[in-house]
């Protein structure tokens, strides 16, 4: 990728501030951390869900349960993509029934990933509610899905790529448009 075409839209401090705000919004909306669980969507959604859980724990004193979900087996384009996506493990180490579950992902785009994640989640039980938290909403929805918590709205064109880099996987925190 040519360096000139890259634009940093969120740096490390901005990502941290956005997550802190989302943590407070989650607690405000759900009146505390009771019956609350965070489920990250592989790969970077899982890292973000862990960070959100830490921030909620710092505010509320109680750390919500965390899970990870892999949507590969629920995709609507199985067998149609050029590259076969790798299957990661799904891990929901708590009963989802009666829980308020916040799905966490890095970028919200078409909404198809979130659709698949909701299908995967309800296979584990009947949550009281499912909410959606994303670090970046880049628009161009193809399904009737909207986020409950957004780190930053970033209007993009179809040609642009939004890359979320996190320390856990990429060695640094930043969101780049290229």
């Amino acid at each position: 990728m040519p360096q000139a075409a890259q634009r940093i839209v969120l740096d490390s401090a901005a990502i941290s501030r956005a997550l802190t705000r989302i943590a407070h919004e989650i607690l405000e909306r759900n009146q505390g951390g009771d019956q609350l669980a965070l489920v990250g969507i592989h790969t970077r959604g899982v890292d973000l869900s862990v960070r959100l859980a830490d921030k909620i724990a710092a505010v509320e004193g109680v750390r919500p349960q965390c899970g990870a979900i892999d949507i590969t087996l629920y995709r609507d384009d199985v067998g149609r993509t050029r590259t076969q996506p790798e299957v990661h493990g799904t891990s929901i180490p708590f009963a989802v029934d009666t829980m308020r579950i916040v799905l966490v992902d890095d970028v919200l785009y078409t909404g198809r990933t979130v659709r698949a994640a909701m299908d995967a989640l309800v296979d584990f039980g009947r949550p009281k509610s499912i909410q959606l938290a994303v670090l970046v909403d880049r628009g161009h929805r193809e399904l009737p899905i909207r986020p409950d918590y957004v780190g930053k709205n970033i209007p993009t064109s179809y040609e642009e790529r939004v890359s979320v880099c996190l320390v856990e996987h990429d060695g640094q925190d930043r969101v780049v448009i290229e």
Binding site: D70, V87, D123
Partner: peptide, 22 residues
Amino acid sequence: FVLHTAESFREISEREVKKVPT
């Protein structure tokens, strides 16, 4: 690669509803 994929599939058989729509 096949072994890693299989290790990811093991969890499905531990669920209450042991089925994915793939």
